[in-house]
Structures are given as structure tokens and as C-alpha cells.
Amino acid sequence: MSRRFPLLAGALLCAAASASAVEPAPNGITLPEGYREWQVLAVHHRSDNNTLRAVLGNQAAAKAAREGRTNPWPDGAILGKLVWKAVKHDRWDTALAPGDFVHAEFMVKDSAKYPATGGWGFARWLGKAQKPYGADANFVQECFGCHQPVKDRDFVFTKPAELP
């Protein structure tokens, strides 16, 4: 059963900085080139911190999602999450819209390189300036700790959206 995942409107993605001008995360992961062209796998609204999130996947992740091969995700899959503060839409009282850009997060699946964190490398860049998150490479323990509740789903919270 094949599914297609459309690209998120370019207007939402223009908030992120150019990947080539951004410093790597403290663990050496670099902001993936071309992530703005990745397919959208899911969207989320988190009411606890009032954010809107677009979950993107590189070609390997999008293919795995279409084929239902997400537990485990294949090596080479990269999941990206772009996060904005949710604000009230200026012309639609019951709608939320993206406000200030908060951060971009990425999970890189490489079972051989990241065995201590379930096969995933984690990285985050803060704000429009895309400042790398974490004082040193140990920041990944915070990420991995947060993902423990979904260990049975290959440490991934996102369930790709199904399309007709």
C-alpha cells in the first residue's frame, strides 16, 4: 500500500537558516543539507508548550514510512522536526499558525555509529540563528532519556500520517 507525503508549504520552511552556514552539533552531526525539500511525515501540536511541529523525513525515511518499515526504521533514515510557537491566526479565530521559529531537531539512524542511544544520533539547533544545542556531546543523553517511553517504537514518537 503506497502513500504519498506532500511537501510542507515553502512559507513555513523559510524560517530556518541555511544549513551550510550552521555549526555542527557538539556530537559532530551537521544540519542536513536539503532538509527543507524533505517530505512531511506528520504534524503535531503540543499543548504543553504551545508549539506546532512539522516532522520531515529524508528519502530513506519517507520510503520506509510509505512501506510501513518504521519499527525499526532503516539505517540511513533521518527524521527532522521543525518547531514554531503556536499563535492565533490573525484572520481565523479558531486556527493556530506558526509564530516564532523555536528549533530544528534531527534523529539520524545509524545502528553501528550510535549503538549506545538505540541506533540514533540526536542533534538540535536553536532559533533562527540555528545555534547548536548542548554544552558537549553528552547532551544526547537528555534526548535519549526523553525517548525511552517509545523504546518499543524504535525510540520514535512520531507515527507517520496516513494519506488516502
Rank of each mutant, 00 (worst) to 15 (best):
F101Y: 13
I29C: 14
S47D: 08
H89I: 07
P74M: 06
K88F: 06
A161H: 09
A21F: 05
A77F: 07
A97F: 05
L7A: 15
L13G: 14
H45G: 06
A116V: 15
A65N: 01
Q130R: 13
G34R: 01
E37D: 12
H89R: 04
N49H: 07
R3T: 11
N27C: 04
D110V: 04
A161S: 10
G28K: 10
A19P: 13
G99P: 05
V43T: 12
A11N: 15
D93Y: 06
H103G: 11
A25Y: 01
W120R: 13
L79I: 02
I29W: 10
K88C: 07
A95S: 08
V150S: 13
L163Y: 12
D154E: 05
G34C: 00
A129M: 10
L12N: 08
D100V: 12
F139M: 11
P132Q: 04
R3C: 14
G119W: 09
N58G: 03
R46D: 04
A19F: 09
A137E: 13
S20Y: 08
R66D: 10
H44I: 00
Q130M: 10
A135Y: 13
A21C: 12
P24I: 04
A137S: 12
K109L: 07
R4P: 14
I29M: 12
W38V: 00
H103M: 15
V150T: 05
P132E: 02
C146A: 07
P26Y: 06
Y133P: 03
A135Q: 08
L79H: 03
P149G: 02
P160Q: 03
R66T: 08
G68V: 04
S18M: 09
G10D: 09
K131W: 11
N138Y: 06
D93L: 10
Y133Q: 06
K151I: 06
R46M: 03
Q59F: 07
D48V: 07
G99F: 01
E105K: 07
N138H: 10
R91E: 13
V102Q: 04
A112S: 10
W38R: 00
L12H: 09
Y114F: 09
V140T: 11
